[in-house]
Design a protein around this nucleic acid. Structure first.
Lengths: 329, 329
DNA sequence: CTGAAAGCGCTTACAG
DNA sequence: CTGAAAGCGCTTACAG
């Protein structure tokens, strides 16, 4: 420890440098000592070794994050929020992909735990929650973002409301026969958005038949494939609600291949208000969700929990952004 | 250390567990001891504390990664490659965004260094390399991916060739008047892709006037804005080469706003063969680049360097993917 | 083949 | 207000 070239023991250096303010440091050292220690530390560019600190204090100041796929714009944005908030509070983050695979999820989690993360944030929760229940039982502390699961702390968008906004908007623009590209059935995002839309349509007197709800991956290829299934049957729906913007883009591609016009023949709605939504050749009506904020609050909630606080699930409000793809036909 | 419930000292446990194979362990312990140690370790689910190991061995087994923005599909994919390769070799990664801001770049790097990363991978190199030169001068070990800078080890795509492929294809499909959305002037990707296209056009006898090359951010909004500038002047070009797929999508949006058809009125080419390119309403001709592989090789190269090896810059080959957006008109 | 000892760089009671 | 001591959990010469 170079810094005791200030003519003082490591103990004192540690005490001075770990005091938040000068006044706090005065409890431990004389004004002169404080000045000298700070000066030497600054001159040498002293940085405490986090491994030594961690070893001694038994706190790594590391948070583990597991997401389905960082390539996904939505999760990447949420992660940015997490990392940003973590950095502000002196934490670092370690991320990995689980690809929504139960096995990888478990492996990734153990790897992060091996690295002594203090807590975890999951962006890939499965609604049944079996894995999470076991983890909680072991005393591992974590928070869910993006997708919720019963009985676990989470920060998510109110997707039920999001779905309802979409359903109501479609009804208001004269569409009653709607197909929903529902995403993966194990994701609360998919479940809630679909349910919200179904509820809104039912309130307008429309009962969606089962074949109008089709499941599949939350990406462009998944959206394309899902729409192709929808178009196998006549009559075509008047609108397609893709519960994800990328799926919506794939859907538009499939429609265009059939010479169907958006919104003339079929309206399309996405979800998340991705950076692309506004810039597409046919700009996309979608639901804006505060992704970055979700990440920030997730991190904050986890830190609260680590400090012994309890945490209620948080629901962030979505809002509808109306663009060309649902213009009245 | 729970594991010396095997009736042996920590020293021996350490030696046994750190031997790659049983036969290697035989140099240090009897077959019986080895068996017992392994058994107890497995039973207790023993995992060495990385902070203690790091402190003792002075190796953190952590790599720092800094990218412009993880939200960017291209960088996210490269990072996946880095993290995948790192995990395979027992390394963890710490990522952050620099937003291509010199100040943030420096801050992020120091933060990672404070965390005792053994080396760094930069996906946000500026071609002038001032920051990198200083870092290398301090003895920090790093590798560049995606963007290169003179004098530093890097794994990049041969963007000069990529640009040339695009230029040649445009000429072959009858386009000679081409506008290039060149991206940021400090990124080698932008510089090289543009230069390659310019070279190919020149070889075909076309000299691109300066106003046909416009700079701007590598995203949908940037692409839209750039095209709007291009369309301020008559005649319109016959083709637009957006040196990034997202910029190409924004470009298509802007063209559509002017009632210009792709490829009928103006052809469009992107770069990177992003997941979306094939699924767009008008599928996009683009250049495929091995993003994940770039990340993997970058990590490997960094590890080589950490082990004292020297490293030549690596150029990965791009390939042209022809789709609707450049169909002969 | 195995153990005892030292030490990585810190923090934190415990004395004074 | 300051110091000396112990210890976090490992690894690695050094002996034997």
């Amino acid at each position: 420890m170079v810094a005791d070239e200030a003519g003082v023991t490591p103990s004192t250096v540690s005490r001075v440098l770990n005091s938040a303010s000068d006044t706090a440091a005065r409890r431990w050292a004389s004004a002169e000592t404080i000045r000298r220690v700070r000066e030497v530390a600054a001159r040498y560019g002293y940085r405490p070794n986090p491994q030594a600190v961690g070893l001694r204090t038994r706190r790594s100041r590391l948070i583990g994050v597991v997401v389905p796929r960082l390539q996904d714009y939505v999760l990447a944005t949420i992660y940015e929020g997490i990392d940003e908030a973590a950095t502000e509070r002196g934490y670092g983050t370690l991320v990995t992909n689980s690809l929504d695979d139960a096995r990888k999820q478990a492996v990734a989690t153990e790897m992060l735990l091996d690295r002594r993360v203090e807590g975890l944030i999951f962006g890939d929760a499965h609604f049944d929650g079996a894995f999470l229940d076991k983890l909680a039982g072991r005393g591992v502390r974590f928070v869910l973002v993006s997708r919720r699961a019963p009985g676990h702390p989470s920060v998510t968008v109110d997707d039920l409301m999001g779905g309802r906004l979409v359903g109501e908007h479609l009804v208001a623009t004269g569409r009653r026969d709607v197909a929903i590209l529902a995403g993966e059935p194990y994701a609360s995002t998919a479940i809630d958005r679909t349910q919200g839309a179904v509820d809104a349509l039912r309130a307008a007197g429309v009962d969606l038949p089962a074949h109008r709800i089709v499941h599949g991956p939350f990406d462009a290829q998944g959206g394309r494939a899902a729409v192709e299934r929808v178009l196998e049957r006549r009559p075509f729906p008047e609108a397609i609600f893709a519960t994800n913007d990328f799926a919506a883009i794939g859907a538009m591609g499939a429609l265009r291949d059939r010479n169907l016009r958006v919104p003339g023949d079929i309206a399309v709605v996405g979800y998340n208000d991705t950076a692309l939504a506004a810039e597409l050749p046919t700009s996309l009506t979608t639901v804006r969700s505060p992704m970055r904020e979700m990440g920030r609050q997730g991190l904050r909630m986890l830190l609260d929990i680590l400090q012994g606080g309890a945490a209620e699930p948080v629901l962030l409000p979505p809002s509808l952004v109306i663009r060309e793809s649902t213009a009245a036909s």
